[in-house]
């Protein structure tokens, strides 16, 4: 436990001092502002582009802002997270900084758990910041009351991120090097995308957590329909983290 806390402290310090946390917070804050801005500006821009035609566009509403929010985070946000954390083990192993700690008796379980905790922590903080900013703008500009299941929908997206991070951690212990780790994580997302074409497994696919968020807000997708995906994502996350620990304990350094 003391190893876990000491190493978590080191990870957080590293995040701040290498500007990773700063960059991520600012990028997510920018997403938070850009989502309502895009929603508000899209009709204006379209209008300006198609001057000769008068297209009757519906007035933007809160749901448009949230649509942008979920699209931005599920795509760009996740990509940023994966790229920033892609080298979480690889850089330490290739530079040899971890070896010194391990020879001092640092428990390998603590290494894996503290690294995972750190990643989940930063992801949570960034998502929260982005959410609060979008929420503030959206409620200021539009009535927010027609939006349903908002917190649940954001929770699903958060859980999807937590799940992706467990895949990232697993890839990092399995393959040496950052590019292999990124490739494997990206590959697993592609696999989920391919599976999602098949409607029968949609119910269980963790990817559903990041693809039906807007439908949840409009109540066209039932909350209970996502329970299986939540379960699968949670169980798989635990399995991936546990496997990472087992693999890392056996790894020759």
């Amino acid at each position: 436990m003391s190893h876990y806390l000491a190493f978590l402290k080191k990870e957080v310090m590293e995040g701040f001092r290498t500007y990773k946390v700063l960059i991520m917070v600012l990028v997510f804050a920018a997403f938070g502002i850009l989502s309502p801005l895009t929603a508000k500006m899209t009709p204006v821009l379209l209008d300006a582009l198609a001057e000769e035609f008068t297209i009757s566009l519906p007035e933007p509403a809160a749901i448009d802002s949230w649509t942008q929010f979920f699209k931005n985070i599920a795509q760009m946000g996740i990509i940023v997270v994966v790229i920033v954390f892609g080298g979480i083990l690889a850089t330490e192993l290739s530079r040899g900084t971890l070896i010194n700690m391990l020879t001092k008796g640092l428990s390998r379980v603590a290494v894996i758990l503290s690294k995972y905790t750190y990643m989940v922590l930063i992801w949570t903080v960034c998502l929260l910041i982005c959410f609060i900013i979008t929420f503030a703008y959206t409620s200021y500009l539009w009535p927010n009351d027609e939006v349903r299941n908002l917190v649940f929908s954001v929770f699903c997206l958060w859980l999807f991120g937590v799940f992706i991070l467990s895949i990232l951690l697993f890839s990092a212990t399995l393959v040496r090097g950052m590019s292999g780790c990124l490739l494997m994580t990206g590959g697993s997302i592609v696999v989920m995308l391919i599976i999602s074409i098949w409607p029968a497994v949609e119910k269980y696919n963790p990817l559903s957590l990041a693809s039906f968020n807007v439908q949840l807000l409009m109540d066209t997708y039932k909350v209970t329909d996502l329970f299986w995906s939540i379960g699968v994502a949670a169980v798989l996350s635990v399995i991936f983290v546990t496997t990472s620990i087992i693999l890392f304990r056996k790894k020759q350094l």
Binding site: H3, K9, M13, R95, T97, N100, M101
Partner: peptide, 24 residues
């Protein structure tokens, strides 16, 4: 180690503190 590598973002005393917490 032959080419010792430590956490570049730390100061020497901070590094020793981390080692201390790990060695107990």
């Amino acid at each position: 180690p032959d080419v010792p590598e430590f956490y570049n973002f730390m100061r020497p005393m901070e590094y020793l503190s981390l080692c201390r917490e790990i060695t107990g």
